[in-house]
Design a protein around this nucleic acid. Structure first.
Lengths: 219, 219
DNA sequence: CGGCCACTTGAAAACCTTCAACCTATGTGG
DNA sequence: CCACATAGGTTGAAGGTTTTCAAGTGGCCG
């Protein structure tokens, strides 16, 4: 059995008073080009709700709960999780700024996966209306399809079947190619994602000469 | 190392004379509801090119070649493949009728993955125009996003880290939940996909009491 | 100071891969 | 029609890798 994750803490209203959740048009946001990989014109329909800052471990969406729109990660790192029938919670993906959470649930009414912050993270939630997106904007649809397309690319998990060392190495390379932030996750979380025991991740890192990979330490 | 696949045969013009490749509007096709999970109205923009019947092993798209639109599988089973830097070709997904090939390449100009028929299979290729879809139809964009969303769901690979027996079992259950056709792939292909040696797949099937899983036999 | 959490390490057991045969259907050429 | 080649499938034994279990380290925080 691979690394078992500890129970995440409950969603809190931490910080909710400091930065109010707020409805904005991405066109007026300096990060819009990183989020959408294109210039966003006002009233194109890129309307989001800025969520409060997530603390490490804080749950953003809970599996099977009502789907109210996908999120864009704007800072930090968020883990996508799946609770299996055997009760084990596994990390199925890590999302960094510019990537999305909940795209895989766009066709349904509930979240297919959960999501929890791995490091301090901020996200914006897209305004959404069931059962599809309201008719306004082909630009939004096109952007979402492009995002979804890109995420399918990452999802191939090219390290399947490789020995532990190479799997960990491939994971690190992949993560580094997507963001320049230092690795924010624990070895247990890496193990959960790669399907390896925590100890195996440790030994793989030792043998790869990647000892001292920066991770969160203490709380 | 996991199961190594034999070289696929080259794309042939097999059968090209029997069923001509043909441009059609999905609205006039009896399969349109399975393909798009919705009623398709004429001139909504669901225009495809019917491809000739693929023989088992025949290559549909080659990795890195020019992207000319995603495909919908209409019968049989198609494997999505990735050629790794170490020269090993791995199956990263199996696609059955109603599922798509090439969605992960919609944001680029070339195919991120290859694709080859696992059993006899037929596909339709969407009409496409770079760099996105021509402005006509929000209905197509919505349908594609829904498809993409659904494929992201499958991509989680919930059997990561499970022992071989359960991995194979989970794979079979997953495949059966998506189509009622008998398993069309070889044990080597299952191994390639799950990251297991062919022999391990055989032994896993024995121990699961799933001996006699129907697969292609001989040529 | 004590507890918790992330991280490490060692040793034994379990698991999987590799290698080397061998079996069995199918299609081909003689 | 039969022999043969081939591809898919199966099996056993040896060896290597990974997991498990058990223990221990060190930093941070209450």
């Amino acid at each position: 059995m691979y690394a078992v994750l500890r129970m995440p803490r409950e969603t809190s209203s931490f910080d909710a008073g400091l930065m109010k959740n707020d409805d904005v048009d991405c066109a007026g946001c300096i990060s819009s080009e990183r989020c959408w990989a294109e210039k966003v014109s006002p009233a194109a329909g890129f309307l989001v709700r800025r969520e409060h800052l997530l603390a490490p471990g804080e749950v953003l969406v809970r599996q099977h709960h009502r789907f109210e729109g996908p999120y864009v990660v704007t800072s930090g790192c968020v883990g996508v999780t799946e609770l299996r029938i055997d009760g084990v919670e596994r990390i199925v993906a890590f999302r960094v700024p510019g990537e999305m959470i909940g795209l895989e649930s766009c066709h349904g009414a509930t979240h297919r996966f959960g999501a929890a912050a791995v490091s301090s993270a901020s996200v914006c939630r897209l305004r959404w209306s069931a059962p599809g997106i309201d008719g306004r904007s082909g630009a939004v649809l096109r952007a979402l399809l492009a995002k979804s397309s890109r995420q399918l690319e990452f999802a191939a998990q090219p390290w399947a079947g490789l020995p532990a060392r190479e799997r960990v190495r491939a994971f690190i390379d992949d993560f580094r190619s997507r963001t320049d932030q230092p690795l924010p996750m624990t070895r247990a979380q890496i193990g959960s994602y790669l399907g390896l025991a925590e100890e195996t991740v440790v030994r793989a890192l030792r043998r790869t000469g990647r000892r001292g990979v920066p991770v969160i330490h203490g709380r």
